[in-house]
Structure formats: structure tokens, C-alpha cells
Amino acid sequence: MIRIESRPEWRRREHRREQLFQLVGAAIVLFALTTLTVLLVKIFLDGYTRLSPEFLSNFPSRRPDEAGIKAALVGSFYLLLLTAALAIPIGVGAAIYLEEFAKRNWFTRLVEINITNLAGVPSIIYGLLGLQVFVRTLSMDRSLLAGACTMALLALPVIITAAREGLRTVPNSLRYGSLALGATQWQTVRYTVLPVALPAILTGIILSLSRVVGETAPLLVIGAVVYISKLPDGLCSPFTVLPVQIYDWTTRPQKAFQENAAAGIIVLLMLLLAMNAAAIYLRNRYQKRLAL
């Protein structure tokens, strides 16, 4: 309810309220900033002493000062590549179908509702799906491939949404131009729409894949192993990834292992930072191109 008030003391009160809210706003801004700073500083202080070339090139060990993240880092890298190889074609394909080919009917709506809902399913449920379908039924065992398939399903809704947004940035005039020249729908998509939309699609994809790099829960469920003394040498070999290694070290009682966890987190955050920087670089380049 709004009351219109004009008595001086009321007006003063309103003024005070206004100032109070400004203060609350400032406090909240500070809260967010402080939290982030404290988090980053705490992790850096815990972990920086452990950062060394050996930390990157050693395998996990029972002795914390000899343990390293080589297996985890390489595992994360392979998992990312494999997940991308699986999820990008399917995700972009689905996005092209929904944006460029599909008629607006009940089926398309069903697919869309589905994708929205899949994006909201907790990641650990994808772990259960991967455990039952890939690890057991398709007997991929606790392999890199099973992990990548699970992560691909997890990343798919986000990739589809990102790719659709990328396709939507292409103006219709380009499509009409191509179609008017006699190109078929697929030719239009392949030679006109996709090249123009590619940077935007890529930006979205990199951002969704950076979530895959930080994801832990589904990989714990399908059984990423922590102690690995050799690098994965094929699709079927057991693997571990950086977040799983961090989880393992964090849950140990010894302080030295927790320092390892902090050092692992620093590496993980650097990796994410690099991916996001790549995405921002692409976005900026692409914005310049649109301005032409």
C-alpha cells in the first residue's frame, strides 16, 4: 500500500528509510565482493606453497608432499575432449533442427519442455543414469568413455540452449537470400547460417563445457578412481579428474592433503579462467564482426 504523506516528520522518516536502503545495498555489494575475495585468498594461501612443477607432474601418492595431479589433469583434459566430441555434434544438431527445420507443433514443444527440465535435473541423477546405463548395461565399466557419455548427457541441455541462442543471432535476411537463390534448407544452414552463427555458438559451448570441467558428483557416482598410477591409454581405461582428486584430498583428515586440495583448486580455477577468457575473446571478436 502506498500512503501519500506530507507531514514533515513523515517525510524525514521516508528520507531516512531511503538512505537506509542505500546502505543495505552497499552492504550487499560488499558482502558479495568480500565473500569472493575471502574464498580466493583463503584457497591461495592454503595452496600456493604446494604449487610446483612436481605437483603437476607427479602421480597421486600416500605421502602428501610427493602427491601430484598429473593423472587428474590429463584425465580432465581427455574427458573434456571426449565429452566435447560427443556432445557438440548432437547438441548443435538438435539446436539446428529446433531452430531451422522443426515446425511449431506439439512435438517441438515437448522437446523444448524436455530440455528445460533436463537442465534442472540434479547432476547426481545423471551419475545414477550413467552408472546404470553406461557402466552396467553397456558394460563400459568405470572407463573414460562411460564418464564422457555421462558428462555429454549432462552438458547437452546447456549446449542446445547456447547453440539455439547463437543461431537466433543470424538475421533472417541471410536465410531468405540463400533460399531465394535456390539453395535447399540444409544448404542454407550449412553455407550461410552456420558460418555466421559459429562464433556465438562456440562461445556458448565453451562456457557450458567449463561446467563439465568443474563437475564432480556424477563422476564420483559412476566411479572415477582416485589412485591412478598411469595415464589413461584408451577409451576403456580407468580415469580420474581434477575435481574428484580435490574431493578426495579435501575429505582426508591430514592438513597436508588439504593443502594439496587447495593447490589443486588453484589449478582448476586457472583452467576455468582460461576457458572463460577464450569465450570472452571469441565474443568480443564476434561483436566486432557484427558491427561491420
Binding site: I43, T216, I246, T250, A262, L269, L272, N276
Partner: peptide, 16 residues
């Protein structure tokens, strides 16, 4: 804050 992996938040909660 939205981009930080949850395992990092877990570490923060437990050790800080």
C-alpha cells in the same frame, strides 16, 4: 560466484 565449482565451495565450508 556462479562459475565456481561446487567442490571448491565444499572445501571452503569445511576448512574455513
Amino acid at each position: 560466484l556462479a562459475g565456481i565449482p561446487t567442490v571448491v565451495y565444499g572445501y571452503f565450508a569445511l576448512t574455513f
